[in-house]
Structures are given as C-alpha cells and as structure tokens.
Amino acid sequence: MMTLKTCDKKRSASGVALQRFAAFLAEYAALLYGCGATSIRIEKNAARMARAFGINFYIFIMPAHVSVTVWDDDESDAAVAARRTAACGISFNLNARLSRLSWVVADQCLSLEDAAERFEKIKQTKPTGKWEVLVLTSIANASFCHLFGGDGVAMIIVFISTLVGYRLKQIMLEDGRDVRLTFLCASFFSASLSAAGHIFNIGGTPEIALGTSVLYLIPGIPYLNSVSDVIYRHYLCALSRFFEAAILTACLSAGLCAGMLILGLKTF
C-alpha cells in the first residue's frame, strides 16, 4: 500500500506557475464535483495533488462553482482560480479515474504538464453505452418489482414500461430538454404503461407493477451524497444536492399522479 508523501524534488512555484497550478486544481475539483463525488473526496484528492506539487492550498466548494487558492511557502505570492462545476452527469468511472490520477501525481511526482495531459485524457472518458444501460436498467427495475413482492407478469410489465420510459429519458436528454421536464414525461409514460395491469386485470399484483415502474428515476446518488456532505459539514453542498434530488422526485411523482389521473386510477 502506498502512503501520501510530498515529492522529494520540491518544486517551488510563483507568479504565473502558481496561477497554472490553481487553474488545474480548480478544473479538477469542478469535474470531480460534476461527476458526483462527495465533497470530502474532492478535498482529499485536490489536497493530495497540491501537496505533491509542493504548494499550499485551500479549496472552497460551492454547489455552482469551485474556488481554489494556492500560495508559496514564504507567502510572497498567491493565486486564485474559480471554475463552474461541470454538468457532465454522475459518473463513478470518472470519479475512480480522477481519484487514481491524484495518487499517480502524489506517488510518481508528476509535473503539472504531465498531470494536465492525463487529466485531458480522463475528460474524454466515454459513458457506458446507452443500449447497455437501457437493458440493464430495465432488468434492474423488474428485479426491484420482484423484491417488492411483484409476480412474473408484474415484472414483465415493469420491464417494458422501464424500457420505454428510460428510452424517452435518453432521447429527451440527448435533445437537450430540461432534466425536470424529462423526469416528468418519463415517469408519466412508465406509469401509464404499467397501469395496463390494473386496467386489463393482468397478473395478481398490478399495484406493485404501477408503484415500482418509476423507481428507476429516483435520484439515489444525490440523496446519498447529500447525507455524506452533512456528515463532513459541507452543509451548503448537502442542501443543494438534497433539493436537486427532491425536485426530481417531485417531478417523477407528478408524472405518476398525472398518469393515474388520466387513466382514472385511484390508489390513495
């Protein structure tokens, strides 16, 4: 196991060099925030790299932007850089690769240029294939239906409604539609399709099919991140992530209600 260390060949930086360090660290932290890393992970990774670069470092993480201040040992020079948090969507693959980069910088004493080059390559990381995600999500939601007590017919209904709803979500997001509107439309479609069990009396657990058909839209990661940020006292980021998740939950709930109302279903 490797341990955190400051590079032996201590690199002194000042003026323009400090500005470049600050810009790199701010960009790194902004991308890490955007891909759904917790605030403590962003702090630790960026501090690890700053230490390896031999500069003093302070980070200020806000929901919409990240600000990094770096200064040299004798405090004669300092630089500040701020970047907007990236809107790249949650990606644990990016999170893992960026975390690994911070260790490579610390252990191999990479120069800023090398680190920046590797960072650019990481930024090009492709997301998981859309058809793979579509099929896996549909299977996952059908399995979820079974965990809630749904029978085989309910699982098939949920699989189809998730397939259609998730595909609609992908199309709308690719088209640049608002994410809240997308959640509302996807949940409306999934709920309307899964209501078939109720309307045509198919299967023994139609209410479970209807209830679980929209669960693939629940923003689980932002909820988990918000509680993690509370634990590490990043209250503003926690609040922001919580509200973001709560608004998406409200949208999917509204879509479900609309689908049930239009089809004349009353489950409350």
Partner: peptide, 23 residues
C-alpha cells in the same frame, strides 16, 4: 432469491451512474 434480485438491481442502477465495469 432476495440477494439475487438485489444484485441484478444493483448492476442495473449502477450502470445509470456510469460505474466502471470492473466494479
């Protein structure tokens, strides 16, 4: 059965969050 379906659900939901395949 509970474990099996939970595992399937975890793989599917984690694919939405672009989890690395090795995970």
């Amino acid at each position: 059965e509970d474990g099996l379906f939970a595992a399937l659900a975890a793989i599917g939901f984690s694919s939405i969050s672009n989890t690395p395949r090795r995970a």
